[in-house]
Write a protein that binds this DNA or RNA. Structure first.
Length: 364
DNA sequence: TTCCGGGAAT
DNA sequence: ATTCCCGGAA
């Protein structure tokens, strides 16, 4: 049983080693160069379930477009979603938008500093509330993200599902014990998460480079990758779908997903109700005409695109064709369509799969 | 080519 | 317990 000694307590050797490592090795991320709570809130919302490398560029563009709470709160949902295109989990964008409006309407336009108040904002859970409170306001709150959970699980040999249940509670308690109470909470929390991101890796931890390996329980056991415990259980089911890229006068027809279709409200190349295995250019051309009334020429299979929607792994077969006759827009019952040039795709909210298909079309 | 990591809401 | 996505490591 590891007991809490002076050396291991707050301000002791463990803290000093990790903080020294962090100051030396921390990545120069754009949101670490600002103290603006709004900018930090945006970064944390984006970083939920999304890697740093992807978020970096998106965060810059998002803040350029919506530099403060007021700008975001006053924006349209479509504009916010357009800046989010390809990031996935589009609910986060709607929630961030709603959070900005709540901050404007209920907090006088200032991001609240209390974790409890932050927690009330849409899209802000326990982790994000603690992260913003500590990083932007230096409150002694302990955010436990996947990285911190893994570091703590190994450090203190806490096994089990880190995402919920008793193991998650033990991790939260440890994190709360460790966070400095009189300054430096944000720095400490980021150090813990950075260690998880750079050194205490899920599969092949680099214990040789770890500043706290000498006090790490899992490293002492020699099998650190066994912590925290079992991860995802189910394997994704494989599916296949056919989508039509229809061009008319240099513009492509996109359909907006309706209620119940995911991702809801985003534009995608329209799907066809065709058993993917039997899709041929002729069959696709026939379906397009029957479904939307468009007569097409030069129908051919352009290629395939893969994407994941949680439990499903979807293979998209893309057929491209030129519309030569038919209505400007299909009947209302077929959904909402829009004609858009590839160069203007970034102005619309679109899914990642749509961006992939657009890349396919661009280098045709 | 497959596999895996990563928060919040309901 | 289930739903939401994507990119990069293996």
């Amino acid at each position: 049983m590891r007991t809490k000694t002076t050396a291991g307590g707050i301000g002791g050797d463990r803290h000093r080693s990790l903080l020294a490592w962090y100051r030396r090795h921390r990545r120069d991320l754009p949101w670490r160069r600002t103290r603006d709570p709004y900018a930090i809130l945006v970064s944390e919302l984006m970083l939920q379930q999304t890697r740093v490398a992807v978020v970096e560029d998106r965060w810059r563009r998002f803040l350029e477009r919506f530099p403060d709470v007021e700008a975001l709160a006053g924006a349209s949902a479509d504009d916010v979603l357009a800046l989010w295109s390809g990031l996935g989990y589009y609910r986060r964008a709607r929630q961030l938008h709603a959070a900005a409006r709540a901050i404007r309407d209920r907090h006088g336009g200032r991001v609240p500093a209390e974790a409890a108040r932050l927690r009330e904002l849409p899209g802000v859970g326990a982790y994000t509330a603690a992260a913003v409170a500590s990083i932007a306001f230096d409150r002694p709150e302990p955010p436990v993200d996947g990285n911190a959970a893994r570091v703590l699980a190994r450090w203190f040999r806490l096994r089990g599902d880190a995402r919920s249940g008793p193991a998650a509670r033990r991790l939260a308690r440890r994190a709360a014990e460790l966070v400095p109470r009189d300054g430096g909470a944000g720095e400490w929390n980021q150090a813990l998460m950075e260690l998880g991101a750079l050194v205490c890796l899920p599969r092949r931890p680099r214990c040789g480079a770890c500043p706290v390996a000498s006090s790490c329980g899992a490293a002492a056991e020699g099998r650190p990758e066994r912590y925290p415990g079992p991860g995802r259980a189910t394997r994704p089911v494989r599916e296949s779908v056919v989508r039509a890229a229809l061009e008319r006068n240099g513009r492509w027809l996109l359909r907006r997903n309706g209620a119940g279709e995911t991702p809801e409200g985003l534009f995608e190349f329209p799907a066809l109700p065709c058993p993917s295995g039997r899709a041929t250019p002729a069959a696709v051309a026939r379906l397009v005409e029957r479904r939307w009334g468009w007569r097409v020429e030069d129908c051919r299979e352009l290629g395939t695109v893969r994407h994941q929607i949680l439990a499903r792994s979807i293979l998209v077969r893309v057929f491209a064709a030129r519309v030569v006759a038919g209505p400007a827009m299909p009947p209302r019952s077929a959904g909402t369509f829009r004609r858009v040039a590839l160069s203007r795709l970034s102005e619309l909210p679109v899914s990642g799969a749509t961006l992939k298909i657009a890349r396919l079309l661009a280098r045709r």
